[in-house]
């Protein structure tokens, strides 16, 4: 085995995985706060990335990046308040349909406003490849991994150490009890959606330089993120992050070393992994077994 190739493939797998981890974390965040599996997560991420593209035409990268995150936050929170809140008590089927409706609307809206053209999207991580022990690593890949790890740490610290983070966790675990303690549960849920949209925006802005920006860009990423979230146990944030990196590296190594897995087959492989986990380990690798309620 060629050690250099292996190291490079692992790192670029980690870079892909970082994107999956961000989106998977967004899915888990929403699942934990509102018990919704958000099929529109990928499209919301794609939309905010288009907003970032437009902002990038007017300012330099980092101001646009920060503004995009702020926009994503407001957008996500607004979605929760306007379309998710009314179906809070409705059946699973209805809620899934609502996220599907969001999926179609957001996708159509971007096509309408930005047209279906493919676009280049800049990466902030430019320059010569990083050389470690004679092996070259692309800056963008290293950058994605670092940014994702930083985001995850910040988010973890927020939930662990701040009063607001604690209140959000309480609102997700037992809304009625949290309410009696004075926690405004409705706003906490909206905040959860806001943070998820921010994570999605980061995932989108990191994906676009790799794949070109187009309105269908995040659909395959969403499948990988689903696989990652399910691998980690759909309600476990740590599981989603580890799941994301595992899927990213795993698929990359498969594509490198198994001749059968051509690039077109990566998604079907992810699909098979997803089905396999759902069937044989529905609680994921890190999740707790939840009582099955039918």
């Amino acid at each position: 085995m060629d050690g250099q190739l292996f190291a490079q493939q692992v790192v670029s797998g980690l870079a892909n995985g970082a994107v999956y981890a961000s989106l998977a974390l967004a899915l888990v965040l929403i699942y934990r706060t509102t018990h919704v599996v958000n099929f529109a997560q990928g499209e919301m991420a794609m939309f905010t990335t288009f907003v970032a593209w437009s902002l990038n035409n007017r300012m330099s990268y980092w101001p646009a990046f920060v503004l995009t995150l702020a926009f994503a936050f407001v957008f996500g929170a607004a979605i929760e308040r306007v379309v998710i809140r009314p179906v809070e008590q409705a059946s699973h089927l209805t809620v899934i349909m609502v996220t599907i409706a969001l999926f179609v609307t957001v996708n159509g809206f971007v096509l309408w406003v930005w047209t279906p053209d493919l676009r280049d999207f800049p990466t902030p991580f430019t320059g010569e490849p990083v050389v470690v022990a004679g092996v070259f690593f692309a800056r963008h890949e290293i950058g994605i991994i670092a940014l994702t790890v930083a985001t995850v740490v910040v988010l973890w610290a927020f939930f662990r150490f701040t009063k607001l983070g604690l209140a959000m966790r309480a609102a997700a675990i037992r809304p009625e009890a949290a309410r009696l303690l004075g926690v405004r549960v409705g706003w906490m849920l909206a905040l959860g959606w806001g943070f998820a949209a921010v994570l999605g925006a980061i995932a989108g802005m990191m994906t676009a330089p790799l794949r070109l920006l187009d309105p269908n860009m995040m659909q395959p990423v969403l499948i990988y993120a689903f696989a990652a979230a399910v691998l980690g146990g759909i309600a476990s944030p740590a599981g989603a992050v580890i799941g994301g990196f595992t899927i990213g590296v795993g698929i990359n190594l498969l594509a490198t070393y198994v001749d059968f897995v051509t690039p077109e087959l990566e998604l079907p492989v992810a699909f098979a992994v997803l089905i396999g986990i759902l069937l044989f380990r529905p609680a994921g690798i890190f999740g707790r077994v939840a009582a099955r309620r039918v």
Partner: peptide
């Protein structure tokens, strides 16, 4: 402060976190 039937303890949080939630307001 209303301590409801069944106490409303958040079992997945630590004792200290439960107490901190008491001071949320």
């Amino acid at each position: 402060a209303h301590v409801p039937e069944g106490r409303g303890i958040l079992g997945e949080l630590t004792v200290r976190e439960n107490l901190r939630l008491g001071a949320y307001v």
